[in-house]
Amino acid sequence: MYVLLFALGALIALTVVFGAILGFASVKFKVKADPLVEQIDNLLPQTQCGQCGYPGCKPYAEAIANGDDINKCPPGGESTIKQLADLMGVDAKPLDSAHGQEDVKKVAFIREDECIGCTKCIQACPVDAIMGASKVMHTVIIDECTGCDLCVEPCPVDCIDMVPLTDTNWKWDALAISVKNIN
């Protein structure tokens, strides 16, 4: 009987001590995490292209947080899917081709002599990257353009091209040389 009580007492004491330690640790070392939507939004490429079916990256982030699939973002491609999978604790799946293919980075380019100044592309641009006013020629601010191609469709004269970004000098080798893989 004594042995039993002793064991019981010891166990209770241990429970109390470790419980206290854990409790203390959870308060003391609490990690203040971003809300989930913010974290997801940070992983998305912010092209605001809407290829996922939502009007921008933030809405898609909210949808993912509410359980939507993580493979609907073509500009982000496989790497974004992988990061999202890590964050959400789900398996990475291949890109859903219904939403488009992964492509090289592009920016919009307006053939300025053909532009009639209708401002339709300006209204379509999700990041205000097109300059211009009614009846005057428009142009794309290349550094602000996310390559979402939302401006291409509304253009009544088809004067917007999506042009692949050219590489600057320091980028060449990552793309040009594939490191030989073992086996």
Binding site: D41, P45, Q46, K58, P126, D128, E144
Partner: peptide, 15 residues
């Protein structure tokens, strides 16, 4: 890319 996407995000939200 991160700088660019942050900028895009900000612009999108401002818009």
């Amino acid at each position: 890319d991160k700088i660019k996407s942050d900028k895009a995000k900000e612009r999108f939200e401002t818009r």
